[in-house]
Design a protein around this nucleic acid. Sequence first.
DNA 1: TGGATTTCTTAACTTAAGTGAACGTTTGTG
DNA 2: CACAAACGTTCACTTAAGTTAAGAAATCCA
Lengths: 191, 191
Amino acid sequence: MQDLLFNFISKFVSLTEDEKKAIAAFDIFRSVKKGTVLLKEGQLSNNCYFVLKGCLRTYYIIDGDEKTTAFYTEMEGITPHCVMSGNPSVYYIAAVEDTIITASTPEMEHETFAKFPKFETLCRMFSEQELAKSQLTLDDFKTSSPEQRYLKLLRNRPDLLQRVPQHQIASFLGITPQSLSRIRTRISGKT
Amino acid sequence: MQDLLFNFISKFVSLTEDEKKAIAAFDIFRSVKKGTVLLKEGQLSNNCYFVLKGCLRTYYIIDGDEKTTAFYTEMEGITPHCVMSGNPSVYYIAAVEDTIITASTPEMEHETFAKFPKFETLCRMFSEQELAKSQLTLDDFKTSSPEQRYLKLLRNRPDLLQRVPQHQIASFLGITPQSLSRIRTRISGKT
DNA sequence: TGGATTTCTTAACTTAAGTGAACGTTTGTG
DNA sequence: CACAAACGTTCACTTAAGTTAAGAAATCCA
């Protein structure tokens, strides 16, 4: 389980045994059951999550119903906006399936940065990369129709369609479950 | 002009005179005329930009026409995806108006990090913050209708509507210029 | 296991966005 | 200054998404 994390880290920086021990010393690994809510709207939290196995999602409750906006699967991390801003969270985070995560705090990071500057490099590179990705994702969303977005998801993340209920996929695509259902029948007709 | 940059930086970390000099030593300030294209699709570039005054935009050419997806104004930075990935750029960057920017490269950053670790902290914090923002922006986009998106823009960035041609705003909102025009008449009718 | 809930689909109807085209206005440039 | 290009609006028409409602299928869990 730790190895999953270390393999991932090694894509950015190489770690010495000492550094690995320093990470292991923090008790950051958590197992969360499907459906567990890790963060609620209105809550102030300091926890940042990184998914080792499984799937988390962020969602909003708007006019009484859930709008899922993002999924986080293997080797993806969430730093909730409330951790950065200090304001109450505007969204929820929950486990889509049984999930293994790391939970860390800015304080823990800060402490580690002081001991091993390499970790700050790791975090900087990771968030720079995620930022560039996030921007491409937004661009792509803006320039595509719902149907195109669905087709791209089918191409790029076929696993998600298996792991996640359709109505969550729908709001992830920015449409209603009914529209997604229609798109699916439309497409299967074209084949 | 440098002061604009230093004031901004001081929101994240405090700089000594030495550090300020080290930044000033790099010749990073550029003036670009309205319309100047800083990055083209297909190009490989190492330049990262930070807007001190003015406005840049990113756009794609899809089926022969421009789709503007993002604007960058005072105190906002772009690290083009191609800089991160090493792949040819998928988008263009151009100046919406006469603009003053800084242009830097990962190499310059790297060099500065080695001398002043504080800069890496600055960059980490900045990109973490931008990442959290970028995610909120995407969530907001997904959960709003075109009309709601326009109303929010009107509320949050009224300046953009003055600075930028309407058809660029339209694709920024993920709609056609005609739709934006309709939304505007629809809204003014409601008042 | 069996009832309740959730999930997905279908359908009819409404609303709004996309498309193609025309037209007046503004802007920019030779 | 005059012409061309770019820009914004309007219109008629098409297409697709939102809405409301209902029902079938899958799933959850007591």
